[in-house]
Every structure is written in C-alpha cells, then in structure tokens.
Amino acid sequence: MTTMKWAARADHLGGIPRKMVIKAVGAFAKAVANLLNTTTVYNAETLLRHVRNRPPGVPLLTVSNHMSTLDDPVMWGFKGFPITDANLARWVLAAEDICFKNVVLSYFFRLGKCIPITRGGGIYQENMNEALDRLAEGSWLHTFPEGKVCQEDAPIRRLKWGTASLIARAPVTPIVLPIVHHGFEKVMPEKYMFGRRPLLPLFNRDITIVIGEPITFDVPELKQKAIEASRHLSYSHAGWPNTTPCGLNEAAQRCLYTTISEQIQNILEKMRSSSKSCLKTPKR
C-alpha cells in the first residue's frame, strides 16, 4: 500500500484537507470523551505545557499503554486540550494493516498525521525514518510501545524496541512523557458482540488519563554503557542493517534499546499500579 507521503505534507492543497480532518476528528474525540463518557485527567498541565511551550527544536515523544483502537484520538479529547489545532496535533505511529488498508483510508489517516508502521517489520523499516524526520523537526510524536491492544487489567507488557530506537537515534533527544489510561477498553471493547468490536463507541463509561513527568535519558552515556556491556556478546545480524544507524554494532544496540525500553516499561507499570489509588481527587 502506498505510504502517500505527499498527503502528509503540511502544504498539501494549502493545508486545508489536514485542517478539516484534524477539526472533524477532534470534534469526534471531544464528543466521545466529554459528552458520551466521563473523562478525568491527572496532571494535564504537564502535557499542555510540553505541547505548547517546549523549547524550539526540541521534540516531544509521548508513550502510553494501548487499551483500544480509540485510544488515539480520544485520549486527546479531554477538556482544555487543543486537539483541533492542526499545527499542535501529534504525529502518531499507526498500524498499516488497520489504518492503511486502501487508498481512501491511507489518504484520511495521512491527513490526520499518522505514520504507517508494519507490525513485525522491525525497528529499521523505511517509515521509521519518517518518524525520525518528525522528531528532527522538533514535532510531537506519540507511540504505543507495547505494539498492540491489550484490554486485560494486567502489567505493562515487554515493550517493542521501536520507541527506544527513536529516542537513541533522534538528532535531539526528545522530551519523553509517559501516559497511562484506563477505560478505553470499556468504550471500545475488542469482543463486544459476536466477538467483534461495536460499530460505534459505547457511552456512559469512565475514562481516566494519568500524565507522568518527563523521563530523562542521557543517550551518550547510555550508548557508552551499552558498548561496555556488549563487549563479549555477538549476534547473527539477521534482519539488521549492515550499517549501524546508532554508530553501534548490533550487540550494543540491543543492550541500548533494552535499557531504554525497560526504563519506560517500569515507569508505565508504576503509574498503572498506583493510578487506581489516586483517582479520588482529580487534578486538571
């Protein structure tokens, strides 16, 4: 399926199609989050501050658990968030087999600032370079590092290395902001009727979104530690590029991506575990 990079450009047809899609999707997200359901957000000001006022040229990378196919865009539909602003809207990694099935869907999701990712295609697949380009521009990118929807009340699963590779390879290390949410699995359950999702979002559900604090990564130091830790390790190089995008060999890259992924996973899990006990006093 064509990646339609031209449709993702800000100047495509004067930017009008993008603005129309972002406004329409934003209105839908706000309706689902605030009219059909009840959404409570904790520490929203941290997300708002980094979306609107981070230093020029510094990218923002938000990461979250993945509870349903509606997580994005509805998680940005809470009151006070500028979801209908096409300039501030996030870029997001989206599953190619779901969002890019045909030309119409591809065009729509491209206008909505989605980057197609082939699940199982590896961390060095072509479209990951586009994600790196967005970070190099200082844009906001969202990822679901678990890699797929999980609606069970269970610990955060082992994260895929794609997000870690973006952090390590970005020209400017992004601000990494963790987010944990609950309730989307009830708004769009995977097995609602006859083992299928409902045609429309369900209503009268409670959605909770918890924004964490930025995670700091000293990438040069982490690279050096990865080199030291991998001195006596070797791998087959199957599926890995001959050149090393990180300036590290495969063994060091594996150590580096594991370290970054485990740090993010541990923080998301701590947030997930503690969020149920901190829902009594909403902070907006």
Rank of each mutant, 00 (worst) to 15 (best):
T3S: 08
W6N: 14
W6Q: 12
D11P: 00
L13P: 01
G14N: 02
M20H: 03
V21C: 05
V25G: 05
A27N: 00
N34D: 10
N37V: 02
N43K: 08
N43V: 03
T46R: 13
L47F: 00
H50R: 03
R52G: 04
P59V: 08
H66S: 05
L70N: 08
G77S: 09
P82W: 14
I83N: 12
D85M: 06
N87Y: 08
W91M: 04
I98Y: 13
I98F: 14
K101W: 01
S106I: 10
Y107P: 12
L111C: 12
I117E: 12
E126N: 09
N129M: 14
L135M: 02
L135D: 00
E137A: 11
E146H: 13
G147E: 09
E152H: 11
R158Q: 11
I167F: 07
A168N: 11
L177G: 10
F184I: 02
M188N: 02
M193L: 01
P201E: 04
N204W: 12
I211C: 08
E213T: 12
D218Q: 05
V219N: 01
P220R: 02
A229Q: 06
L233T: 10
W240L: 14
T243S: 13
T244G: 01
P245V: 00
P245C: 01
L248W: 07
A251K: 13
L256D: 01
S261L: 03
Q265Y: 00
S274E: 15
C278G: 03
